[in-house]
Structure formats: C-alpha cells, structure tokens
Design a protein around this nucleic acid. Structure first.
Length: 206
DNA sequence: ACTCGGATGGTCT
DNA sequence: GACCATCCGAGTA
C-alpha cells in the first residue's frame, strides 16, 4: 500500500476543469465524515457530473443564482447539500474555479468504517444494499444534513481520502437518473453517471 | 421479481 | 401551485 493511500485529497483535486473526469476519479476513493463524534466512511461507487451553465439538469442551469445555488459559484472543493422531495439530503461537491458552477453528485458508497453507526442512522440491523445504495441513503448513513452545506472538503467534518485509481474497465458510464422532462438533449441522455462494475451498493438502474 | 402510490417541504414560476 | 438529482412499504407474482 502506497503512502498516499487514504490521505485527504487537496483542493487542487476538485478545482480541475473537467468535471466528468473528476466524477470518474472519485470512484474508489474514501468519503469520510466525523459528525456528532462519530467517524463513518465508505468507498465511493457511484457519481454523477453536472456541468452548468449549459446543463439543464443542474440547479445552476444558465447561471441561475438563488439562495440555494450560491455554493455553486465558490471555488471547487466545498459541499453542496440540498433537500429533495422534502425528505432526503443529497450530497454534492462543487468543482472547478470560482464563478463556474460545476458539481459532482455522490450517488452511492460501499460502507467501510463505522458500519454500526450507519446501521443505527438507517434503522437497519444488517448490511444490505439499501444501507448506502442511493444518494439519499448515503447522506443519511454518513450523517450529512443541511448544516453541512458549503463546508470545505479540507475540513475535519467531511473529506475524501485518496485511493489508487480504479481501472477504466471497471467503470460503467450511463445516462443520469431522475432528470426532469425539461432537460433537453444532449444533456438528458449524456452518459455522465459513473458506477463501479459489479458493485452491490450502486443505486438501482433506471 | 416487479409496479405503484404516498410522504414531505423548499424552490421557483 | 407545480415540480422535484428519492425512498419505502404494500400489493401482486
């Protein structure tokens, strides 16, 4: 195991220009949280890239600026957390430079550390796909909520540990899920959802 | 295995 | 007032 294994990723990782590359590079890395005194972590197994202002699937489409979208316009390397369906908190990471609203949605992790705490937060008693197999479930298991919106990925609350790059052949690219009907081509079916092949914790296919 | 409907609340038109 | 980057439980099989 090399020295850099699980070392906290630096801001430079997130501030690169190519958000689809960053989304793929995040696969296999270790998403960690230290929230309410509990350490939990898991391997990232599914991500999606959002490329505003052109991308109609993004909240920051056409550089839309509202109270909710403000984090998009900060420098890469901070969390963007928002509420969906009044119930679930989805965790994203803002990328690239200040003023360019790129983001990666973390859709699923494979539990590694603090599994007992994740089970408690999810009200489950054994490891199964719906422990962390989906963006809402991942945030719930890791203890991420709206108070973490805007927090730096270099903090000691939420961060990502480095890991060896996964083999290209282990990555499946497919269209993103859950997009509204207003998302026009090519963004509706562009293959910007990335999954690790054969990983049981990736979210259900659509 | 699957399909279906309900929960739930902030954001935007 | 419509729309969600979702999940779960109930029903059918």
């Amino acid at each position: 195991m090399i020295d850099s294994h699980w070392k906290k990723l630096p801001l430079e990782f997130y501030q690169r220009e190519d958000v689809t590359q960053i989304a793929q590079d995040l696969l296999g890395k270790k998403l960690c949280t230290n929230i309410h005194g509990a350490f939990t972590a898991g391997k990232i197994v599914e991500t999606e890239a959002y490329h505003a202002p052109e991308d109609a699937a993004s909240h920051a489409y056409l550089n839309r600026k509202t109270k909710r979208t403000m984090p998009f316009y900060q420098s890469g390397g901070i969390a963007y957390v928002y509420l969906i369906y009044g119930v679930y908190k989805l965790f994203n990471i803002i990328t690239h430079i200040e003023g360019v609203p790129h983001a990666v949605l973390i859709r699923a992790i494979e539990p590694i550390d603090g599994i007992d705490i994740m089970l408690y937060r999810r009200n489950l008693n054994k490891i199964q796909r719906n422990l962390t197999g989906g963006p809402g479930l991942t945030s719930m298991a890791l203890g991420i909520d709206m108070t973490h919106n805007g927090i730096s990925m270099t903090s000691d609350v939420i961060w990502i540990g480095d890991a060896p790059k996964v083999d290209e052949h282990e990555v499946i690219a497919s269209p993103r899920v859950g997009l509204g009907k207003n998302v026009i081509e090519p963004y509706y079916s562009i293959p910007w959802r990335f999954r690790l092949k054969n990983n049981p914790f990736t979210s259900p296919a659509k």
